[in-house]
C-alpha cells in the first residue's frame, strides 16, 4: 500500500482546507477592496444620496460675517473664506467662539441677511443662533450652521451675506 502517497495527498488536502478557512475570514476585507477597485456599490450608494432638488446650473456665493458686541470678552470668528453653493444644496459651515474672560459667560447670536430679499430663501436646518451659548472661562467652541439656499432664490442674486452678531446675556462688568 502506498502509505507515503496517501500521507502526501492528505497533507495537501488539509492545507487546502486550512487555506479556505483563512479565506473565509479574508472575504471580509476583500469585499471592501473589490468594491473600491471596481467602484461597485460605491457609485450606487452615491446615487441614492443624490438630491434631485439641487440646481446645479448656477452657484451663489455666501459671504460669512461675524460681529461681536463686546470684543474684550469674546472672540467670534466666521470661516475665513466665502462658500459657493448650488441652490437646493445642503451646506454646513462652522463659526468659532471663544470666551476670553476668566469667568463663565452666556451669550446668543442673532442672524441677519443682505440683501434682505435673500432671507426668505435662506432655510437654516440647524443653527447655533437657536440656542444660548454657555462658555466656561477661556473655552473655545465650534458652532455649526446647516442650511439650504432654496431654489426659489432670484437668478440675479449672485452674492448673499449671512451675518451673525453675538450679544452677551446677563450682567456686564
Amino acid at each position: 500500500m502506498n502509505t507515503t502517497g496517501n500521507r502526501r495527498t492528505s497533507l495537501r488536502l488539509t492545507l487546502l482546507s486550512a487555506a479556505m478557512f483563512a479565506f473565509g475570514f479574508a472575504l471580509v476585507p476583500l469585499y471592501d477592496v473589490f468594491c473600491d477597485l471596481t467602484g461597485l456599490n460605491r457609485d450606487a450608494a452615491q446615487a441614492l444620496a443624490n438630491n434631485t432638488q439641487v440646481d446645479a446650473s448656477r452657484r451663489v456665493r455666501i459671504e460669512l460675517v461675524a460681529n461681536v458686541q463686546d470684543g474684550a470678552l469674546w472672540r467670534f470668528a466666521a470661516p475665513s473664506l466665502p462658500v459657493d453653493v448650488h441652490p437646493g444644496e445642503l451646506v454646513q459651515v462652522e463659526y468659532e467662539l471663544e470666551n476670553l474672560s476668566d469667568r463663565p459667560l452666556i451669550g446668543r447670536a442673532v442672524p441677519s441677511y443682505a440683501p434682505l430679499a435673500a432671507a426668505a430663501h435662506f432655510k437654516k436646518i440647524d443653527c447655533f443662533c437657536f440656542r444660548e451659548q454657555r462658555l466656561a472661562p477661556h473655552e473655545t467652541v465650534r458652532l455649526p450652521v446647516l442650511f439650504v439656499l432654496d431654489r426659489g432664490v432670484a437668478r440675479d442674486m449672485k452674492v448673499v451675506t449671512l451675518s451673525y452678531t453675538f450679544f452677551a446675556l446677563g450682567k456686564r462688568t
Binding site: L16, S17, A18, A19, M20, F21, F23, G24, F25, V28
Partner: peptide
Amino acid sequence: LIAVMPVLAGAVTMLLTDRNFGTHF
C-alpha cells in the same frame, strides 16, 4: 466539501466571536 466547509466554519466562528468575545464582523 474541502473548499467550502472551512468557509462555513469561518462564518460561524465569526458569529461565535461576535456573540461572545466582542468582535464586530
